[in-house]
Nucleic acid binder design. Sequence first.
DNA 1: ATCTCGAAGTTCGACTTCGAAATATTAACA
DNA 2: TGTTAATATTTCGAAGTCGAACTTCGAGAT
Lengths: 169, 169
Amino acid sequence: MAPQRRSIQDQHSDDVATYVAAGGEETVQRVITAVYGVTKKLDQWYNRQFADLELSQGEWAVLAALAKAGDTCLTPSQLADLSSVAPSSMTHRLDKMTGRGIVQRRPDQSNRTRTLVSLTKEGWMLFSAAVREANVVESDTLRGLTDFERHELGRLLEIVIAGLDEVDA
Amino acid sequence: MAPQRRSIQDQHSDDVATYVAAGGEETVQRVITAVYGVTKKLDQWYNRQFADLELSQGEWAVLAALAKAGDTCLTPSQLADLSSVAPSSMTHRLDKMTGRGIVQRRPDQSNRTRTLVSLTKEGWMLFSAAVREANVVESDTLRGLTDFERHELGRLLEIVIAGLDEVDA
DNA sequence: ATCTCGAAGTTCGACTTCGAAATATTAACA
DNA sequence: TGTTAATATTTCGAAGTCGAACTTCGAGAT
């Protein structure tokens, strides 16, 4: 009754064709469309997985940014920038996360307009749990690739990453 | 005064190290983190570029979904699903886009609970303009890769895409 | 033919986000 | 020292989003 469900790769080919027909370059569109196809699926899985931990995408962004900073504290403005969100939005988000006890705020002694945010021990534990949960689906995502291919994929993407700096300027 | 601004690839290495320290696999994290680094930058550029066209990310998702469907009309539910948004949100979004004249709604004659949505001529023109604008930054993004490398990157990503179907089940 | 169940769309209240204005502190300069 | 400009954060109103309840319609069973 329902038309045969199209496979994701067929859908992908048609998507590329649509973009090319609208004026995009084929070699570019093939890569970019594929990148977005992967992240879209991953985002859906993250949302499902993180629901267990009562963690939204936005809260995850804050958690990850603070974890990556290590011992260095970050200000709300920096967190807003790293999370691609307005500074005013970060205020309430931090209120909530502070209330939950996974981050803590303290005034900067050397500049009292500034607030320093850092992870609590509970925050670190939550981060670690989230990474290990996420690693499951991420690992599944790459399961069609050999070790060599994973290495090659990583290498190529890192070339792209390295070029992003200059494009901005 | 400000500490030397760290390059994106250095940042990337440290990010991977953080995830590995928290319990992720190195080969997996290298690839996934790189994919997200690319899309994050692209998202920022899209937002800037599309501001010219008065187009939000959400509206772009609807536009692209309808364009990919070609002549086939889509229902609000399908659009909500394709755009990863709640059906109730799609109602208002379509109201706005209809008011602007880029999409049109009409009742399905064969099933009157259903509404069919399609692009207007203005919608198609807007889609085409957006694709060509986006292609500029996308092309810049890949500028560090040779033609062969682009082909290889596309090939590897398409293997991943092909595997996504089965992971879901 | 009628009844019930499920599906599609919309409406409603609560929460999140944004941009602009307000507040507080620091830095610069005459 | 006093005034002004700049920076960091928060508050506030408008807009977008979500989940739940509601309405309408269609399909299948009795």
